[in-house]
């Protein structure tokens, strides 16, 4: 039968040790949950966005200064034909005038300017899946027919964005690892303090025939109760705040781009965090107490 639940209760109450322990577990769970949720959402959105961007190349056909040389429509048609003929090219779609105007709107306040200015034609070119066609190859292909065409490969700057995201992921991982280490140190210190203040009781239990595992198990049960409550509250709070932030940023981040599988796996990973925190704190309790008990006769 287990020892009375409140056997070491005064020591946990003294100097608010139990409350401090629960608070630290709570903070660690909150940080780890929040960091994992934010990191995962960011990474997945970045991945979806990057995949779309990396497969696209924009070809800009500047408006011809002298229409008598070759009309703009003909230059666009010629470029489109050449691009279609290239291996690895999927679709070639000219952006409509309204799309171009929408893109330029931040720079031109006066709509009448659009009529006065010669606007370039933008071709949205997609690579076929697995194709390795590069901006330089497209530029080479177009250099005779449309020598002033400009080719913009989105992959170049999405790679920088990826590097930044991977850096953030690493930072998130380090934060979670630090949270775990802090938790282990806190558990060790709390158990040490409780064991020191309950020295008399522990000695008595030994003399009555308790072995180290009986005592460690009792400590473990006590810290487990505290950790479960703290982890549940912190987890709920972190989820609520993450949900709130996602709702607030829904205009700048398209969370609907994330697949159901992603949401399910994210939920599974998140659920593991409080479980891991409770497991880690109880295992650390057992280890610390067993180590401390070895110093008892």
């Amino acid at each position: 039968m287990p020892l009375p639940r409140h056997l070491f209760a005064p020591a946990f109450r003294a100097r608010h040790l139990g409350r401090s322990f629960a608070f630290i577990v709570g903070i660690m769970v909150f940080i780890a949950t929040f960091a994992t949720a934010a990191e995962s959402a960011l990474l997945s959105l970045g991945y979806n966005w990057g995949q779309t961007m990396e497969s696209r190349i924009t070809v800009e056909i500047p408006a011809a200064g002298d229409e008598s040389t070759m009309p703009q429509a003909q230059r666009v048609e010629q470029a489109t034909t050449l691009l279609h003929a290239m291996p690895g090219i999927g679709t070639v779609k000219p952006l409509s005038d309204s799309d171009v105007k929408r893109l330029l709107k931040p720079w031109f306040d006066d709509p009448s300017l659009f009529k006065a200015l010669p606007l370039p034609t933008l071709l949205d070119v997609s690579r076929q899946p697995g194709a390795t066609v590069t901006a330089a190859q497209i530029r080479d292909n177009l250099k005779n027919a449309v020598p002033d065409a400009r080719v913009d490969d989105h992959g170049a700057w999405t790679r920088d964005a990826w590097r930044l995201m991977h850096g953030l992921t690493l930072l998130g991982g380090v934060t979670i690892a630090l949270a775990g280490v802090t938790l282990l140190i806190t558990v060790g210190m709390t158990c040490g303090t409780v064991a020191a203040s309950e020295h008399e009781t522990i000695s008595l239990l030994h003399v009555l025939g308790a072995d180290d595992h009986d005592i460690a198990r009792h400590f473990q049960a006590q810290t487990e109760r505290l950790a479960v409550r703290a982890a549940a509250v912190a987890f709920a709070l972190a989820l609520a705040i993450t949900g709130g932030l996602m709702y607030a940023t829904r205009h700048i981040a398209d969370y609907s781009a994330l697949s159901l599988l992603h949401w399910v796996s994210l939920a599974a990973v998140l659920c593991l965090i409080p479980l891991c925190a409770v497991g880690l704190s109880t295992a650390a309790t057992r280890f610390s107490v067993l180590r401390l008990l070895k110093s008892f006769p």
Partner: peptide
């Protein structure tokens, strides 16, 4: 230590 506890019991 386990045997010690057993004897003490």
């Amino acid at each position: 230590r386990a045997r010690q506890a057993d004897l003490r019991r």
